[in-house]
Structure formats: structure tokens, C-alpha cells
Design a binder for these strands. Structure first.
Lengths: 220, 220
DNA sequence: TCAATAAATAACCCGCAGGTCATTTACCGA
DNA sequence: TCGGTAAATGACCTGCGGGTTATTTATTGA
């Protein structure tokens, strides 16, 4: 049984108790890795345990059952995701073009390029039917806020005359989709198909350019 | 045990043999429904059987095991998908703008709006990691051809001056993504989240408009 | 009417993975 | 050094579902 990294403050007094405090986090980390790799059903609790450097019994010491563990994993990761999203709400200054560019860059850098978080959409797409509660939570916490943010940006741009009048609901879809698709592929087909690789270097620039041309009221 | 619909020619002589001939198709139909609804792991062979109006043993009379059955289902549905795609190859006439519009309309009407076929991408995203062979087959039969078709269209448009010079690889991504995202959501979150509904009426028009503005060399 | 044969069944087997619990191990305070 | 206590273990139980097969049911040709 190998060494285990500890997280959190290095208060080195109650060594035993520290472990108890650190365990849930370690297990959640391991569970996230395994769930992302194999999906819910194909992940064995014993695998998660051994990846956390622990046995199965220990997992059930901290989580009621596999389903609760899964929910905890998603909620935890979603929490991190939302924290990052909060920074966006404060960015509401400047022109709509600048704002849209910032939002795109933020999503790309903080979410799509984030190793763990970027894997969530694929997991949700895969498991939503079997975990409707989680799906609702995901929708309310991620999708709906993102859409409403984009809606504000687009409507502001149209009002100010920077953007031509478009079908806002549809356009939101066209903006979100490339990000989601990128992430889904990156964590499903790409690992399975040897030759496949999605170009990432130019994505952000190309997409910003693409969108601004699609939306521009006057030629750029 | 309800009545079962028969398919194919109504040659009513060898009634017994007709059943044997029809069974695989009936089972594949049922299997497709169940797999699409629950994913691979959560689908029980006995459920598939009973949906086909048959018992589990009968399924194993025609398919070696659950995995082969799953592969057969995907290959079958993919076959239908590719047949529909073939019509596209012959459409290579007219301007790039017309061509692109036709391709978009074709994909929308024949694939996204097709009840069964539209559910495949979500299933592949969900199961690709656990079935790499299927993923490769899917990539070779669907994704790669679609990308190469779009590449031709875009490059022709750029050459003819209809489209401004863009990053072709990225743009292909931006075109495919909204379709895939629409389909994935339609078969994952939408059934799980009561209030959720994706607008479909204006999708094709809005997207065509969106793309043509994004690509246009001169203001439209 | 009656074998012959093919299709379908349903009872059966069994291994795997989720979940439990008595026992062991490690720490701490006295 | 030594109880007391909390964490961790791993052997164990159990049900579910994939896969098998002896038996039954239906069809056909004579």
C-alpha cells in the first residue's frame, strides 16, 4: 500500500483524525477519475477504493452507496465549475464584442482546458437518463446560467447595434455547442480512436473570429 | 405475449421459416430502443427480449452475446445512416453557398429529425470508451466522411471567392457541433429535465443564416 | 393421423460486483 | 507500558443478470 498525499492544512497534531478528514476528498478524487474513464456502470467501487489507496470497506465508511458517491462526485466537480463561472458575472462592462470575446476566452481557458471539469459534460450526457436528479441539478447549475449569460450579451449587442438582429435562442445554441462538442469528443471518441485528434491551438481565435463575423451588423 | 408485426415480403408459405427470418430484425429493433433509452450496461437482455415479444433464450439463438448484439445494433443503424448520406455525394453541383445550404438541410431533415438515427451520437459518446472498436467504426463511417465532405465544400467556397479564408478544420468543427449537440441533448438531458426543451422550428433557417454570415467574403 | 424437425421456452447455473461486519491495526492520552 | 478508541481491513453474504440447455410447442410433409 503506497503513500498517500495529504491535502489541506498541515496541522500535524492529530494524525489519525487528519486522515479521517482527508479520506472523503481522496476518495472523491479517485472516484472522479474512474467514473470519467469508464462511466458509472462500468466503474467498480473496489477499483475506486484501490485507486484511492484504500479498500472497499473504507469507501462505504464515508458514502452510503455507489449512487450517493457518484452524486457527490458530480456535485463536487460542479461546485468547482460554478466557482469559476462566478467570475464571469462581474465582467459585465465594455462593449458587447469585448464582452463576448471575454466570455469565450474564459470558457475556453477555464473550462475546456481544465482537465477534470472538461470531462463532466460527456459524463452527464452519458448518465443523464439514468440519473434524472443529477441532470436537473446540472441543468439548473450550469446550462441555464450559461444560457442566460449569453442571452444578456447577445441582447445587449443587438440593442447597441453592434450585432445584427438574430434568433437569440438559436444563436446561444450555436455558441455553446462547439465547446460542448469539443469536450464530449475529447473524452469519448478521441481516447478510443488512435488517429483522431482535435485541433486545439487555434480553436479560440478561430471561433471568436467566426462568431464576430456571424453576428456583426456591419462588415468587420 | 402480444402479437408481433411481421416485416418484409408477405410470402405466406413457410410460416415457420418466415418467423426465423424476421426475428433478428425484430430483436434488433427492440435492442435499439432499449440501448438508446438506458445505455449499454443498464440494459438487460431479458428486457430487450420481452420488448421484442420473445424470451431471453431466443435472443441468444440469433446473437452470440450481449456485446455482439450491441455491435449489430449500432452497425445496422449506422448502415441506414450511411445510405442517407450517400445521396449527398451526388449533390456536388452549383455554388458553394447552395451546396452548403443543401448539406445543412439534408443533415437536419434526414438525420437530426430521424427518430432512431438521431439517438446514435449520444450513445457513441456514452459508450465509446468501453467499445473502442465501435468507436473506430463510427469515426471511419460517419465522422471522417462528413468532415471530408465539409472540407470540400468550404475549400471550394474559398477558392471561388464566395467564402472568406477561414481555418477550415476549425470551421468544420463549428458546423458539425450544433447538430451533434442538439442530438445529444435531445436524447440525454431533455428527457431527464422536465422544463427543458430545445427550439427546433427555426433551427435550420437560423443556422444557415448564421453560417452564411460567418463565412461570407462580402456582406450578404 | 403421425413422425420429423425446427423454433422457442423457462428453469437453471454461476460469476461478479455491491454492500456488510467481526476482527485487526494504529494512534493517543495517562 | 498500556488500556481505550477510532479507522481500516478483508473475508463474507447476496442478488442480479449474462449465458446454457433439456424440454415443450408448433409446423410441415407423408
Amino acid at each position: 500500500m503506497g503513500e498517500i498525499e495529504l491535502t489541506g492544512a498541515t496541522l500535524s497534531r492529530p494524525k489519525h483524525a487528519r486522515r479521517k478528514q482527508a479520506r472523503p476528498g481522496e476518495i472523491l478524487q479517485a472516484a472522479l477519475d474512474v467514473f470519467l474513464e469508464h462511466g458509472y456502470a462500468a466503474s467498480r467501487v473496489s477499483d475506486i477504493a484501490s485507486r484511492a489507496g484504500v479498500t472497499k470497506g473504507t469507501v462505504y465508511l464515508y458514502f452510503d452507496d455507489k449512487e450517493r458517491l457518484f452524486e457527490a462526485v458530480v456535485r463536487e466537480t460542479l461546485g468547482a465549475m460554478m466557482l469559476r463561472g462566478h467570475a464571469l458575472a462581474q465582467a459585465f462592462k465594455g462593449t458587447a464584442v469585448e464582452l463576448l470575446s471575454n466570455v469565450l476566452a474564459h470558457w475556453w481557458n477555464e473550462i475546456v482546458l481544465h482537465e477534470k471539469i472538461s470531462a463532466l459534460p460527456r459524463l452527464m450526457i452519458a448518465e443523464a437518463r439514468n440519473f434524472p436528479r443529477l441532470a436537473q441539478f446540472y441543468h439548473g447549475s450550469v446550462i441555464a446560467p450559461a444560457r442566460s449569460l449569453l442571452k444578456e450579451v447577445l441582447e445587449r449587442g443587438v440593442r447597441s447595434g453592434e450585432f445584427r438582429p438574430v434568433d437569440v435562442e438559436c444563436t446561444i445554441h450555436f455558441i455553446i455547442a462547439p465547446f460542448l462538442y469539443q469536450q464530449s469528443m475529447q473524452h469519448s471518441l478521441v481516447p478510443a480512436v488512435p488517429g483522431m485528434m482535435l485541433g486545439t491551438e487555434n480553436f479560440l481565435n478561430a471561433f471568436t473570429d467566426h462568431l464576430l463575423h456571424a453576428l456583426a451588423a456591419r462588415p468587420v
